[in-house]
């Protein structure tokens, strides 16, 4: 469906544009390459997760466990790399092993969520509320209440995954962009995306139209798990550590970004590029508050909250206009 230029489509874009103007007006370093890189790179983790979340929400699901899952995946990745270091040594094989572990653990975690939801038929909210607690406790337990840290020499070696890049564009930004482009194409132009929208708008109709509803739903959770794995691969090199507080509230930020971007929370309509706008809006609010001392940083949450509610108000307007 081609988006018509309605208020609800333009709203998030206009908000993003307004924030950029505001930031540029308040601090001349705002548009500097370094700051733009910082903001985009730090949006990449939540951004990749939010792209996966867009598919889950579009197909009528929800995943509250992604923040905890990220912490758990990071923990397992560090643990595996520290354990393998004596045999593999510091180098590319160890880095690849770590990446492999992160992606595999993410995939399995997503599969666990998906199977519980589709096979056992438990509400997504309940399942992922449960696994949210489980993943977070597991990482705290593995870390013995403290912080799991990657061996320093290995940290130096894989640091470039976060800090490096090509042609001045850092890897997290490149990876994020690739995920977004693929996500947008999948949502708009493939069967999988179409089926997600169909299931989200009415799963009975989808079932009667020969759509394998459970399989598609399962795939959305697996894809989200996989993206959490990818995001973690970028996250771990940044600080080389994971603890019980890693990824705290990421799930809510990802969900908020999806909703701000115009995806319907009850499912049936998804907009991947909107999610990207949502993620950028949320990061920019924090960035501008840090750069400008405009209002107390205590109010960061309040400003994000206002934007989320406004986004939904705009969606309401749109749907009531369609109602007639």
């Amino acid at each position: 469906m081609r988006d018509r230029l309605t208020l609800s489509t333009l709203g998030p874009l206009a908000a993003l544009f307004a924030l950029i103007l505001l930031g540029a007006g308040l601090n001349e370093n705002f548009l500097s390459a370094a700051n733009v890189t910082n903001v985009l790179a730090r949006s990449a983790f939540i951004g990749m997760i939010a792209v996966g979340m867009t598919f889950v929400i579009t197909s009528g699901g929800l995943d509250l466990s992604v923040g905890s899952m990220a912490a758990f995946v990071a923990g397992m990745m560090i643990l595996a790399m520290n354990a393998l270091q004596p045999s593999l040594g510091v180098g590319l094989p160890l880095a690849l092993a770590g990446i492999g572990v992160a992606i595999l653990v993410g995939l399995l975690a997503g599969l666990a969520n998906g199977l519980l939801i589709t096979r056992a038929g438990i509400e997504p909210f309940i399942v992922t509320l449960g696994t949210m607690g489980i993943f977070r406790s597991l990482v705290t337990w593995i870390a013995d209440g403290g912080t799991l840290s990657l061996d320093f020499s290995m940290r130096e070696f894989i640091g470039p995954i976060y800090y490096g890049g090509i042609l001045g564009v850092s890897w997290p930004i490149i990876a994020f962009a690739v995920v977004v482009v693929i996500g947008e194409v999948v949502m708009r132009h493939t069967r999988f995306g179409r089926y997600c929208e169909a299931i989200g708008s009415n799963d009975k109709v989808a079932r009667y139209s020969a759509v394998k509803v459970e399989r598609i739903q399962l795939l959305t959770y697996v894809a989200l798990g996989l993206l959490v794995g990818f995001a973690t691969v970028l996250y771990v090199p940044r600080l080389g550590s994971a603890s019980g507080s890693t990824g705290l509230l990421w799930e809510l930020e990802a969900i908020a970004a999806v909703i701000i971007g115009g995806t319907a929370l009850k499912g049936g309509f998804g907009r991947v590029w909107g999610t990207v706008v949502g993620v950028l809006i949320l990061s920019l609010i924090g960035n501008i508050l840090n750069l400008a001392n405009l209002v107390s940083p205590y109010l960061n949450g309040a400003i994000q909250g206002v934007i989320i509610v406004l986004a939904v108000v705009l969606q309401r307007r749109k749907s009531s206009a369609e109602g007639r």
Binding site: T140, A143, D144, G145, G146, T147, S243, G244, S245
Partner: peptide
């Protein structure tokens, strides 16, 4: 509970 490093210690 052990929510950050210090509390973990």
């Amino acid at each position: 509970s052990a929510t950050h490093g210090f509390m973990g210690g």
